[in-house]
Design a protein around this nucleic acid. Structure first.
Length: 199
DNA sequence: CGGGTTTGACCCGCGC
DNA sequence: GCGCGGGTCAAACCCG
């Protein structure tokens, strides 16, 4: 059973990395469940070229794909609000966040996706430092907390395994990277060109 | 020695 | 106000 709060909270679900962004060191690592394969026409690169990409969403009992403008999907489907107001608050400092908190609860944009993988931490091109681990209630698997190592970047991610199916890894990203991935230095420019959809 | 991980303590929001 | 639970901190530890 998927954690109820999880679904309600995120209402979104699964953000696919473009295939060229995910390295697959393990044979059996696949994005999304095999029972919900990517549609044939949904080659991520294609949509990158159009500055659009697919966002597979999950309702309570079915996975489906939505295509369109990233920001639109994020604000409509993920943040669940018309986020014009909140866009101003994205990426603000911790201090500012505290001030804003008192006025109104502002949440960093979040999205998550599910992968079938032996490894907990997928290589998404960014460098992460673990800052905590917690056993969440009613699950036998701990949740790990990671922060982007770039000191100006406040992006965080959580990684946990599905209780019902330990082969599945749920990765939840919070915030936006203020930089391009640091895969390796020499082609960081190419990477940033490819990956500037990271908003 | 520098950078990452581990892990218990602490913080804070939320429901009762 | 209090307790619970999720999220974060930070000292200790580990490793190349």
């Amino acid at each position: 059973m998927l954690n109820q709060g999880f679904l309600e909270d995120q209402q979104m679900a699964f953000f696919p990395f473009p295939a060229n962004m995910i390295s697959l060191p393990h044979q059996n690592q696949k994005t999304l469940s095999p029972s919900h394969p990517l549609p044939q026409h949904s080659k991520p690169e294609q949509h990158l070229a159009n500055s659009h990409f697919g966002l597979p969403l999950q309702s309570s009992n079915a996975n489906y794909w939505a295509w369109g403008d990233v920001g639109e999907i994020i604000s409509n489907k993920i943040l669940g609000m018309s986020s014009r107001d909140d866009h101003h608050h994205l990426g603000v400092s911790g201090m500012k966040m505290k001030k804003l908190k008192s006025r109104r609860k502002v949440r960093e944009p979040r999205f998550c996706f599910k992968t079938m993988s032996d490894v907990d931490v997928l290589d998404d091109g960014y460098k992460w430092r673990k800052y905590g681990q917690k056993v969440v209630k009613n699950t036998q698997h701990p949740r790990s907390y990671y922060r982007c190592t770039q000191d100006t970047c406040r992006v965080k991610k959580r990684v946990e395994r599905l209780a019902e199916d330990p082969r599945m890894v749920i990765t939840t990203y919070e915030g936006r990277h203020a930089h391009s991935p640091s895969l390796n230095e020499e082609d960081s420019e190419a990477n940033s060109a490819k990956l500037n959809f990271w908003f």
